[in-house]
């Protein structure tokens, strides 16, 4: 039996963002450039939902909630957000030297159950998650109820001047990347190490896939597939320079009650430069 009060508390404490639906397909935020020098610089970003890596041909997503963490840890804001047919575009003025993080993150509970033999779920496809909605949609006596504690995060990074790490500090919530190798200091001929955390602890056994841009101009995806070790780490040997789509998936049964399954997904776009 579900204790609705406990559930509500959990739901309210969860970080709720309206952008879950963006990630039904592959979604990405691609910076035009990631390593910058000089003064009064801006970076322009393309963002979209599309299974073809960095080819905007499906839908423009919803990026009005994109968050910016400035090099000093304060919150920044993107400007000139435009939503096109297939692609969202926005700009970020680089007002400080150092590394900026752009992200969309959400977490919450998802419920699957049956009613009169029909499979039901909340939130439904295209539906936004909310604590009230959850409480309303899931009946007290739902059959075959399973509740999943899920988190999603999508990020990218840009640096003006020397790379810094303040904006990279993990939140200890959901599945996230800890950049052992700085995400704006990646070179084709060098290995990079990334660590994944689930709710602040090493995420062992997460499946990580990396795909270099330009899949349209080759016959194979040439994806790099890796599994995190007991420390939550992977070591990447790049398939040459370019921008990469990184996707990590994690699942275990160490969920906070009443959830029974904990799952996390993480996406980042990283630029690897030629040596």
């Amino acid at each position: 039996m579900l204790n609705k009060n406990l559930l509500k508390t959990l739901l309210l404490s969860a970080l709720v963002s309206a952008s879950l639906s963006v990630q039904a397909h592959r979604a990405w935020i691609v910076p035009q450039e990631t390593v910058l020098s000089g003064e009064n610089r801006w970076v322009s970003f393309d963002a979209a939902v599309s299974n073809d890596i960095f080819l905007a041909n499906y839908n423009p997503g919803r990026f009005s909630d994109v968050q910016v963490i400035n090099p000093d840890g304060s919150a920044g804001q993107v400007e000139n957000l435009h939503t096109g047919k297939y692609r969202s575009v926005f700009d970020l003025p680089l007002t400080q030297e150092g590394t900026y993080r752009l992200l969309l993150a959400s977490s919450g509970l998802r419920a699957l159950w049956e009613e009169d033999g029909q499979r039901r779920m909340y939130p439904g496809r295209g539906e936004q998650y909310s604590a009230e909605g959850f409480a309303k949609a899931v009946p007290d006596n739902a059959e075959k109820l399973s509740i999943i504690q899920s988190s999603r995060r999508m990020e990218t990074f840009v640096t003006l001047g020397a790379p810094t790490r303040t904006a990279l500090a993990p939140t200890q919530q959901g599945l996230e990347l800890v950049a052992v190798t700085h995400p704006n200091d990646l070179f084709a001929g060098e290995e990079a190490t990334f660590r994944f955390l689930i709710d602040g602890e090493a995420a062992q056994g997460a499946d990580v896939t990396l795909i270099r841009e330009g899949t349209r101009y080759r016959n194979a995806q040439e994806e790099i597939t890796l599994k995190t070790n007991s420390n939550g780490e992977i070591t990447v040997r790049w398939n040459g320079a370019g921008r990469y789509f990184l996707e990590a998936e994690y699942k275990d049964n160490k969920a906070q009650k009443p959830a029974t399954v904990r799952s996390g997904s993480y996406v980042a776009v990283l630029e690897v430069l030629p040596d």
Partner: peptide, 22 residues
């Protein structure tokens, strides 16, 4: 003007990471 010439310093990629950016 406005130190705009610094915009391309990072194109010397190896120098930029070894020294220029600091």
């Amino acid at each position: 003007r406005n130190n705009e010439g610094e915009k391309w310093l990072k194109d010397m990629r190896q120098w930029w990471r070894r020294s220029g950016r600091t």
